[in-house]
C-alpha cells in the first residue's frame, strides 16, 4: 500500500478535488488529470459502525471509519486502522487499488 494517494486535479487551475468529478469544482474545466499527493493529514472524526446495509460489511462489524482532512484536499472518508484514535491526531491515508476504484485506509503518522 502506498502512502501517497491519487486524486483528481485540474490541468487549467491546479485545483485538487475529492470525490472525483466530471469537471473542476473551481473553474469548471473538464481538463482533469490524476495527480499523486502525500496522504498526510489530520483526523477530523471517526466512528465505529455497528450496523451496515452492505452484506459484506455486516460480517465484519464492528467496522471503524474516519473522516480525514489531508493537507491538500479536504474530507476523505476512509477505513480506520488505528487502535486508539483521537480527533485532531496526525494521520496518513494509504491507498489500495487504482484511482478509479480506490480503497483508503487511515494509519497513524508516527
Amino acid at each position: 500500500m502506498s502512502s501517497s494517494i491519487d486524486v483528481q486535479s485540474c490541468s487549467e487551475c491546479g485545483f485538487v478535488q475529492y470525490p472525483p468529478r466530471e469537471v473542476c469544482r473551481s473553474c469548471l474545466s473538464s481538463d482533469l488529470e490524476w495527480t499523486t499527493i502525500e496522504g498526510t493529514g489530520e483526523l477530523l472524526s471517526w466512528t465505529r459502525l455497528n450496523h451496515s446495509f452492505e452484506a459484506e460489511f455486516q460480517q465484519q462489524l464492528p467496522w471503524d471509519i474516519a473522516q480525514v482532512k489531508l493537507d491538500k484536499v479536504s474530507c476523505i472518508i476512509a477505513n480506520l486502522t488505528i487502535e486508539n484514535p483521537s480527533v485532531g491526531m496526525k494521520v496518513i491515508i494509504r491507498q489500495k487499488g487504482d484511482c478509479d476504484n480506490p480503497q483508503y485506509f487511515v494509519v497513524a503518522n508516527e
Binding site: Y18, P20, L44, L49, H51, S52, E54, Q60, I65, I77
Partner: peptide
C-alpha cells in the same frame, strides 16, 4: 456510492456519527 458506501457506511447514520463525534 464512491466515497461512503464503499466503506460500509451507506445511509446517513455513519456520516452523522462522524459529525456528532466531532
Amino acid at each position: 456510492t464512491f466515497g461512503v458506501h464503499a466503506y460500509g457506511a451507506g445511509g446517513p447514520s455513519a456520516v452523522f456519527a462522524l459529525a456528532t463525534k466531532q
